[in-house]
């Protein structure tokens, strides 16, 4: 990583490296397809997300949003470029059923703390605090089977918070949720970022109506980040793209 690197996003002051929670530069990544061919998914993606902000990552299907997120979480290895992320970081999956590992909410939130070998009382305190931040303080003993999709997502976010994560990587959390759950999860994330000092969230989404909740946004196309800045700017950019697509029909 170059130490002299500085970032400037439109409307923002120049950012030093230490101000960034996520710093991605010219990252390339290839995956093996079903026919065993190597397919390049990320073709030099570059992105910088400042600390303590909620950013959204948008783009058409197959542009590499989720792949970039998995590379940031360390679930996929990138082949080129540089990638830095504040630690500890947590990844929340698209399908809430895949994220929740334990049978009850409280035990699931505590699962990620297993590697830290903390005293039982400390674990209980962290679990209760985290569940309260996402608005589920009374759900410690609830079976995850009886929770809605949005509630499971919030349990997953609470799990990340209990680990004192500095970065939350959120992969299309609202895909399977109804409108009420969608708002609940968005508010929980917004609450986390504003209440917990220094916590950053990068949220992959398709839904433009979620943009007003964000502090910043980036738009990806064909494995690259083609635009980043404030949410209004990204919304206008997407609007222009949609008009062009309609005109071409």
């Amino acid at each position: 990583m170059q130490t002299s690197a500085k970032w400037r996003t439109p409307g923002q002051a120049e950012l030093q490296e230490e101000d960034l929670a996520i710093d991605v530069r010219d990252v390339t990544l290839s995956l093996e397809s079903a026919s065993r061919d190597r397919v390049q998914i990320l073709k030099g993606a570059t992105l910088a997300v400042p600390r303590g902000e909620l950013w959204m990552l948008l783009g058409p299907n197959g542009c590499g949003k989720s792949t970039l997120l998995k590379a940031l979480a360390g679930l996929l290895d990138h082949s080129g470029g540089e990638l830095r992320i504040a630690q500890p970081c947590s990844f929340v999956f698209q399908n809430p059923d895949h994220q929740v590992v334990m049978p009850t909410a409280g035990a699931d939130v505590a699962f990620g703390l297993g590697r830290m070998h903390l005293p039982e009382d400390e674990v209980k305190r962290r679990v209760q605090e985290s569940l309260e931040i996402v608005g589920m303080g009374d759900y410690t003993r609830r079976s995850v089977q009886t929770l809605s999709g949005g509630q499971k997502q919030r349990v997953a976010i609470a799990g990340a918070l209990a680990e004192r994560s500095q970065v939350l990587l959120l992969d299309e959390l609202t895909t399977f949720l109804d409108e009420e759950d969608q708002i609940g999860v968005l508010e929980a994330v917004k609450n986390v970022v504003s209440m917990q000092s220094g916590v950053t969230a990068l949220w992959v989404t398709h839904r433009l109506e979620e943009l007003p909740f964000a502090d910043g946004a980036a738009y990806m196309h064909d494995g690259k980040v083609v635009m980043h800045g404030n949410p209004g700017k990204i919304e206008r950019y997407i609007g222009r793209l949609q008009k062009q697509a309609l005109a071409l029909r």
Binding site: A73, L75, S90, F91, F93, N95, D97, H98, Q99, V100, V101, T104, G106, A107, A110, F111, G112, L113, G114, R115, H117, E120, V123, K124, V127, T140, G159, E163
Partner: peptide, 27 residues
């Protein structure tokens, strides 16, 4: 597929395949 995804989630949450190294808090 679900089992595979849950296994991936466990790895993402710090489990490295040895239950004796990863304390399970039963609350």
């Amino acid at each position: 597929a679900q089992a595979d995804q849950i296994a991936q989630a466990m790895v993402a949450r710090g489990f490295r395949g040895r239950p004796e190294d990863h304390q399970i808090y039963l609350m």
